[in-house]
Design a protein around this nucleic acid. Sequence first.
DNA 1: CGAAGTGTTGATGATATTCAAGTAATGTGG
DNA 2: CCACATTACTTGAATATCATCAACACTTCG
Lengths: 229, 229
Amino acid sequence: MKHLLPNDLVSKKGRYTIFSCLSSEELEELELVQTTQVYKKGQPVFQENTQSAALFYVNQGFVKVTKLGSNGKEQILRIAKTDDLVGYRSVISGSRYKSSAIAIEDSVITLIPKAFFLKLLQNNPVFYSKVTIMLCETLDRTETKITDIAYKPVRGRIAEALLLLNDLLDEKEHITLTREDLAGLVGTVKETAIRIISEFKHDKLIEIHKRSIKVVNEKGLEKVSSLYN
Amino acid sequence: MKHLLPNDLVSKKGRYTIFSCLSSEELEELELVQTTQVYKKGQPVFQENTQSAALFYVNQGFVKVTKLGSNGKEQILRIAKTDDLVGYRSVISGSRYKSSAIAIEDSVITLIPKAFFLKLLQNNPVFYSKVTIMLCETLDRTETKITDIAYKPVRGRIAEALLLLNDLLDEKEHITLTREDLAGLVGTVKETAIRIISEFKHDKLIEIHKRSIKVVNEKGLEKVSSLYN
DNA sequence: CGAAGTGTTGATGATATTCAAGTAATGTGG
DNA sequence: CCACATTACTTGAATATCATCAACACTTCG
């Protein structure tokens, strides 16, 4: 359990943070009301269908945002990384969480109470505007994901997901999704994901060390990703 | 080509409209800058990847919001009806349209210039808040659609779509999507959609008159929709 | 009336899921 | 730190689901 000073939030080694537009008073208050703690790998941050009381800022680590499919399978909607907000949407619309969030690695996460966030939105137009644009961008990506899942074969979706995960990572960062999570990310089952990964390995598009997948032929994967037959 | 008075926008036979919170000055200005016209069935309202200069308010009729899949097939993201806004998202984020909008019936649509909309957002917090909540709700529905397409078989998705279209309609309203559009809505092809519709007809879940589909056993369709095998 | 668009059905094959049976890696308590 | 349990990964075979191609009927509309 570790409390970060607001300054840490603002000046994170050159990273853009959504809080950079807060006044020093707002930052001070943020420090008072926030709670920062470590979530162990696999630990839920919030659960689908529970009432939203707070949103979360990912300080360090990775969080999968998931939704339960009608068959009980877990669809991963997106993966939140350092400097991302999760759970803010339900706070804005005052509803229950429409998805779950689970740490996929040991992660440092800051809880921000609902009331403070809403006050920020009301009083800080720049912040409000940033949040709105974030919403628009998330919606764009989500809509793109729909057409992908609807029309792109699993093979292409896996290739795309591997590239996407690759881009998510700065320098020496590293996530290893389980094969099951990777499957959940593209909307297929574990076994199919594994088979396709084996093919990619055979085709020298990726390398596998231990369990972790390393992209070695980005162009090749891009080609597979844009193929539709 | 017909110009509606702002009053018409506000007091539409008991329907909620997003403009109900505008001041009379704002409504007056809206009247000056808007252009209302009839779009014939099949006529595009705006096109994916073109620069956004305006958003659109559906006064009457239905508009499909679509996105091109990587294989050139058209995915329908949602169907906008009377009192819905389309294209506002790209206006907010100042980007190109991320989707196309096409009238699926003769429709009366009001064009609202970008600058006026942005000014409204800035000056009318209630309006801004309504738009933000609309964004959140759209995102919810879009995410649900992802898990549906990912894990629900086509059969269930068609059942769901038919129910959804049914709910969209008040009283005596009526849309007839082509089988191809219905397929595009659930992410399949025309032939598969037709086959499943035939089964539903055979099972007395729906009736078909001319080309139009009428739900006659809502419970039954709900059951099919929630079945995953 | 003819042409274009829409709807329909059958046959076939590709793609992906399911079930089953393991192996490999990781974590935990003694 | 080892033994054992648990979790993750892998592969094969059988099957289900869905897309594609092709041919044709029906509607609508200029």
